[in-house]
Design a protein around this nucleic acid. Sequence first.
DNA 1: TTTTGATATTTTAGGCGTCGATATATTAAT
DNA 2: ATTAATATATCGACGCCTAAAATATCAAAA
Lengths: 165, 165
Amino acid sequence: MSKKPAAAASDTETRATSEHAPDLRLWLRTLACTNLIENHIRSRLRAEFGITLPRFDLMSQLERSPQGLKMGELSKRMMVTGGNVTGITDQLVAEGLVVREDSPKDRRAYIVKLTGEGRRSFRKMAEAHETWVVELFAGMDEKQRGQLYELLAALKRSASKAAAK
Amino acid sequence: MSKKPAAAASDTETRATSEHAPDLRLWLRTLACTNLIENHIRSRLRAEFGITLPRFDLMSQLERSPQGLKMGELSKRMMVTGGNVTGITDQLVAEGLVVREDSPKDRRAYIVKLTGEGRRSFRKMAEAHETWVVELFAGMDEKQRGQLYELLAALKRSASKAAAK
DNA sequence: TTTTGATATTTTAGGCGTCGATATATTAAT
DNA sequence: ATTAATATATCGACGCCTAAAATATCAAAA
């Protein structure tokens, strides 16, 4: 009740007014940060590489699983529905960046893998992507980033537990 | 470099491998937390009130601006494009929850306001929404939440500055 | 005034995302 | 073996979201 901002930033966080619970303000601030960063990365990926964020994300999952992943595994890791993964994969297949291989163990399943071109293409983009992220966090010092990392681990545990019920 | 998790959680954060920059891991963890919480809230809003998160968000902005907001103001605050706001507003108008009024000052602009029914409806949903958020953060103690709140303010400053260039 | 440039909103085309339903294959129970 | 239950992936309908272009208005300069 001591001070109020001279001019509220015009973004999602302005939804929180003083009578809202602190947790709500905390959540809206989290959301505002994520949207800010995600929108920035999305537009740079598009502008500089002509790729969408979801496609980049899918390729990213495959890059670190060279043995390939089943559609369902991609779905879990990307935290999106299976139907969604089908569509994104279709696009990447059409672009020649990934392939669907029949699973030898389970005739229902596909194994999705990066193609050679997909891997080359991804590595170039990932390098730029990483520098963008570094830039976005550069205004925080080492200690702050470390603390934030730990607190987000706590948040993840808290939210996972609550969401599981 | 001291310890590694026994089994990584199967979500977006698994995209970060050990050779990635710490900032990248930090960003992916931020994203994972936001997705987790946002997906939970989205499905509860749908299941319990039959409303989508974007519509709830738009109404939320109007609730705290009783004088109404122009389309462009909604766009800035919600951090989405103008064309998107047009569509969401159309839906809410069709449901009788908001109205578009002509701006007396500017014939290009509309003032969007909650209707009486919109306000009543929103307040009921907002109450439930707030308790969900409290639940999701309940696994963190008071001090942790306060620290997280401050660190996110720092992140917001950092990212805003970097994104502005 | 007419032009010029900026602002407010909508429209269009295309991709992302959910949900629910379907087809097919696996697994377990009978 | 037959049946039933479960798991994998796709499809269709619908809504969200962006980017770019179109429309309309405003405001200021020539």
